[in-house]
């Protein structure tokens, strides 16, 4: 009797949960946000592949911090939270930061990581100074400006998703158009130069695309966590294949799934922020890939090592006999 009741309650719980999931999947806000974060994941998977292969994954971290003063100045100029203007400001200050970082690390003895950390914190400091002065002049519109620091995925609007989609589409088309050039410059810039491609144009185009992706990502996961979104999918994808095109496709897929799953988890539970849960999902993909990927994964390597050991022992034994 008790057992039957227990089974019944379990089925009821299960039915409730399914119903809840069904409701959530049909929920308009969830659909919009999941589409936005998913597409952003896809985009940062694609563009992040270039960044990680060029060993510039921390550039994302620095540039996202460096975008803050641009956002502040953009707001001061128009006194409204117009997303496109704020993003334009962010892109400009991100590009200025890129130029300073690259000048420091390429033209003199300063190491890349010192340049990154210095620019990261002084631009972020400038951003805080500007945001403080905005807060000192009361304007009802300024509320939520600091949300850029943590991202505000759950407040994503349909127009934001459209902006993300449109900009993202342009970036994807550029990747397809300049596929050969980007590939050469990612793996062998010297060779690219000897082929007669203009290194300056290709490199600044690639940098600009990375900056734009980062700025778009601020909307979903915020300043601090964007580096995970840029690095994670491509590192995970890299474990499964050696072909650039496949790495990029896989990274896009992993990014998309992480974005949607992260949004799903944060919508299911009470008070779970979206950005951080996306990052946790991405990290799960990374660790899983590092462990179980065939050939180069940690498990596969361990097994190969054991096998070699066994073969070796066998040989020794046969020699002894």
């Amino acid at each position: 009797m008790k057992l039957i009741i227990r089974i019944e309650t379990w089925e009821k719980v299960k039915a409730d949960m399914l119903e809840q999931i069904r409701l959530l999947l049909n929920d308009y806000t969830f659909q919009v946000v999941a589409l936005g974060t998913g597409f952003l994941g896809l985009l940062s998977g694609v563009i992040g592949t270039y960044a990680t292969l060029r060993k510039e994954s921390l550039l994302g971290d620095a540039l996202s911090h460096a975008a803050l003063p641009g956002i502040g100045i953009g707001f001061i100029l128009i006194q409204r939270k117009e997303l496109s203007v704020l993003m334009l400001g962010a892109i400009i200050s991100g590009l200025i930061a890129t130029v300073i970082i690259q000048t420091m690390s390429r033209k003199t003895v300063v190491k890349l990581d010192s340049a990154l950390s210095l620019i990261l914190s002084s631009f972020f400091g400038l951003g805080l100074v500007i945001l403080t002065s905005i807060q000192n002049n009361p304007n009802a519109q300024q509320a939520g400006l600091s949300n850029f620091i943590f991202g505000q995925a759950s407040a994503m609007l349909r127009s934001n998703v459209q902006l993300i989609g449109l900009t993202g589409l342009v970036l994807l088309v550029l990747v397809a158009l300049f596929w050969k050039e980007f590939k050469v410059f990612t793996f062998d810039p010297m060779f690219g130069r000897t082929l007669g491609f203009s290194s300056k144009i290709v490199e600044s185009l690639l940098s600009t695309m990375i900056v734009v992706t980062i700025i778009l990502g601020l909307e979903s996961v915020g300043v601090i966590l964007i580096s995970a979104l840029l690095t994670g999918p491509s590192v995970a994808a890299r474990q499964w294949t050696n072909r650039l095109s496949l790495v990029m496709l896989l990274a896009a897929g992993i990014g998309f799934v992480s974005g949607v799953t992260g949004t799903f988890i944060s919508s299911m539970g009470a008070r779970i922020p979206t950005g951080p849960s996306i990052v946790v999902v991405v990290s799960m993909f990374v660790f899983l890939s590092l462990f179980i990927s065939p050939g180069r994964g940690i498990l596969a390597r361990h097994m190969a090592y054991r096998k070699r050991q066994k073969v070796f022992m066998k040989q020794i034994r046969s020699l002894e006999e």
Partner: peptide, 13 residues
């Protein structure tokens, strides 16, 4: 650099 870029966002998240 990728190792750094993955570990700290995870802990922070």
């Amino acid at each position: 650099d990728a190792a750094i870029g993955i570990v700290f966002p995870l802990f922070f998240s």
